[in-house]
């Protein structure tokens, strides 16, 4: 009885409330987690949920002339799904981005591997050197590829000077391949980082254990190094895939008519056709396509990883 009296809450409603809140915070790890996360959650709410919400609302309106009709309707979505050229463009954008992602990861993996395993000292210097191109303007890098691949570009004039060709090659620029090359180069530094981190933090004794148990270097790579770096590879792939689907600068500059992607169409809807609702719907459909594709890729890698064991 006396002990109960000692732990009894302070009298009064305020006092009791304080005890309840204090107890809830002290006892409930989940609640504490949310409180600690609250700044992040607020930023996420303001910077992500709000804009996406606005976009979603816009996509349910319709444009009539210069006015926006505020009745909620799925008309824009029906328009997109019923227009094969839109769906094809979204599909092609996803396909080009997947190719870019594959090319980027294939390019980034050996570089990340080299820095993580072969460089013993000053790894940070190497990382900075490799990511420096990323600091330069995106536009500049796209133009650089235009200069390299162009009609009178470095490759063509070089080959002409060598006498290999007398007419400039026209298949270098203004096609999806040029888009893939340009985007892969532009995004490689971003892809290197997560792969590097996953390789760098790998416990080296695991590799020695694999060797100890009889693996050749290649077997060891396939059975230990690669499976353990998959989280980094998936992160890199997402970092590249998600933003490149909506890219419109590169397709515009080096893609030509065949290399056009959905970003260009959205850009046109918002700024040239002045049809924000349709542009918003396109953006939402693209985002859904990206999500579905990402989940698909993630699921497949998970399956492959389980099978590799």
């Amino acid at each position: 009885m006396t002990s109960e009296a000692q732990t009894a809450p302070p009298a009064g409603t305020i006092g009791r409330l304080r005890t309840v809140v204090k107890g809830a915070i002290f006892r409930n790890a989940g609640l504490r987690g949310y409180i600690l996360l609250s700044p992040t959650l607020l930023v996420l709410l303001g910077a992500m949920c709000l804009p996406v919400g606005i976009l979603a609302v816009y996509s349910l309106w319709t444009q009539s002339g210069v006015e926006i009709d505020h009745t909620l309707t799925l008309a824009n979505y029906l328009k997109i799904f019923n227009k094969p050229s839109y769906m094809l463009l979204i599909g092609k954008s996803v396909l080009i981005s997947l190719t870019v992602t594959l090319a980027t990861v294939l390019l980034a993996y050996p570089i990340a591997y080299f820095i993580a395993f072969k460089i013993k000292r000053h790894k940070i210097v190497w990382l900075i050197l490799i990511t420096i191109p990323f600091v330069t303007s995106y536009l500049l890098r796209v133009f650089a590829w235009k200069i390299i691949l162009g009609y009178n570009g470095i490759i063509n004039s070089g080959l002409k000077w060598l006498g290999v060709i007398d007419q400039p090659l026209t298949f270098l620029l203004h096609n999806p391949t040029a888009v893939v090359i340009t985007l892969a180069h532009a995004w490689a530094p971003i892809a290197i980082l997560p792969i590097f981190v996953s390789l760098e933090k790998m416990d080296r004794s695991l590799l020695e254990a694999a060797t100890d148990l009889g693996d050749s270097p290649l077997q060891r790579f396939l059975r230990v190094t690669l499976p353990l770096s998959i989280p980094g590879v998936v992160a890199a792939a997402m970092l590249v895939f998600i933003p490149t689907v909506g890219d419109y600068i590169t397709p515009q500059l080096v893609g030509g008519p065949d290399g056009m992607m959905v970003g260009s169409l959205m850009h046109a809807m918002f700024f040239r056709a002045n049809d924000w609702p349709l542009g918003s719907a396109l953006a939402i459909v693209s985002a859904l396509a990206i999500t579905v594709t990402s989940l698909g890729v993630w699921f497949l890698t998970k399956q492959a990883r389980e099978r590799a064991v």
């Binding site: 416990d203 004794s205 020695e208 254990a209 230990v224």
Partner: peptide, 9 residues
């Protein structure tokens, strides 16, 4: 190995 190097995957 000292830390046993158990393959985590």
């Amino acid at each position: 190995f000292q830390n046993y190097a158990i393959f985590p995957h």
